[in-house]
Design a protein around this nucleic acid. Structure first.
Lengths: 226, 226
DNA sequence: GAGCAGCCTTGAACGTGTTCAAGTAGTTCT
DNA sequence: AGAACTACTTGAACACGTTCAAGGCTGCTC
């Protein structure tokens, strides 16, 4: 189980910490986030309730582990598509489908944890400073999606595209969270339809008529990330 | 205080209900959502804790009142701009600024309640069925923003624009929630920059080169709201 | 006016996330 | 060996959101 534990932990403690994470994620999957109590998580991990709070400041913090594990697996799952496809739309589609594939078993659970992610003061917010490493890792993946493609684009678009694609993926996840269709078919449909559109927008961004519009959007993005 | 109470309430009960809402919103503003306890809200309203639960199924439900009151005030605040301006960008800008103006005093509070809004199972989610009336009301406002403007657009764009603008406004609010700049200056900046870009996109949507792209996006929107 | 019915009100009790003072055990220092 | 130090562990206690059995109040019927 991939885990990014604090390095200064005793081997024994590291094991305890991992047991808590395992128990938590298992219970989250089984019962959902709210129904899984800290007492039960601790009990299943074989420790006291209070001890769980020695390793994790709050129940929400257990979700950061989920983020990290998910990202590592998403990275691996995207590899085949990125090695095979060269067309931007197809690369994007494959990467996003891999993302949703991996989240699948956690659908009910992820739905409730996303509520915590939306709170700006929460370290779980994808926009927060604490999540910056996770966000950077995601952005790097999308940079590879774009740069490894055969799509031609101006340097200004190329520089800003990864962040836009990350934002796009957040939108897809938001949609997925709310998607109650069988097998989340609607989310896959959304991906299948929007990925080519996104690629198309990148392509048309080179049109001279859109030069000024692209320039405005570029400046806007630079403003926002300042 | 505008309030959409259930109609079958005794006048006395209606008054009690209103007192609870007033106490709740005041405390939310003073201390924030989390720090305002149901016991304190009930106490300030002069009722027992349990009685608050006779009128509101949960603490979150008190936020629906906030939505309703805010929307009514936003509507009124947007009136002057909509009566004066004809250019789409200016109308959009004015409407969004009015939105953020009105939310101002609740910034800290709104930040924490948006976390509840993001949960799909919550009736507070702007995407939920329970919020549909509130969403429809918002969409109607944006329809007026677009239709009352001098902007020319195809019928297919005109039909779908209100929902897109509503989504855009949700994005602005999401940004605002995370905006910690003085006086939320960055949010106002975002509005000032993006409103003209949005108007510009509507304008360029008539370009023949973009016909097929616009068509794809149109079909996508129709898919999603199905 | 007595009884009745239904709306409204109460506060104690439950289970939750979280805290914390008090420990224990392993390691290092003298 | 003993002492001191640090890293870890405990479970009782706290405040919170929420529930509910019990009771009051109001206006109606006869």
């Amino acid at each position: 189980m991939t885990s990014v534990a604090a390095p200064e932990l005793t081997p024994r403690a590291r094991q305890t910490r991992a047991a808590i994470v395992d128990a938590a994620l298992a219970l989250f999957r089984e019962r959902g986030y709210e129904a899984a109590t800290m007492r039960e998580i601790a009990s299943r991990a074989g420790v006291s309730t209070g001890n769980a709070y020695y390793y994790f400041g709050s129940k929400e913090e257990l979700i950061q582990e989920f983020y990290l594990i998910r990202h590592a697996e998403h990275l691996a799952a995207s590899r085949p598509v990125l090695d095979r496809e060269t067309e931007l739309g197809a690369r994007l589609r494959g990467t996003l489908r891999a993302l949703v594939d991996g989240l699948g078993p956690y659908h009910a659970f992820a739905a409730t944890f996303y509520k915590h992610a939306a709170e700006p003061s929460s370290p779980l917010s994808p926009f927060s400073a604490e999540s910056s490493p996770a966000r950077d890792a995601s952005t790097a993946l999308f940079r590879e999606v774009a740069d490894g493609s055969s799509a031609r684009m101006s340097q200004e678009v190329r520089d800003r595209l990864p962040e836009l694609l990350w934002l796009y993926s957040m939108g897809v996840i938001l949609y997925w969270v709310h998607d109650s269709s069988a097998g989340c078919a609607r989310t896959y449909h959304l991906i299948d339809v929007t990925a080519p559109v996104a690629a198309r927008l990148v392509a048309v961004s080179r049109l001279p008529v859109l030069r000024s519009t692209v320039g405005e959007i570029t400046r806007l993005i630079d403003d926002l990330r300042a």
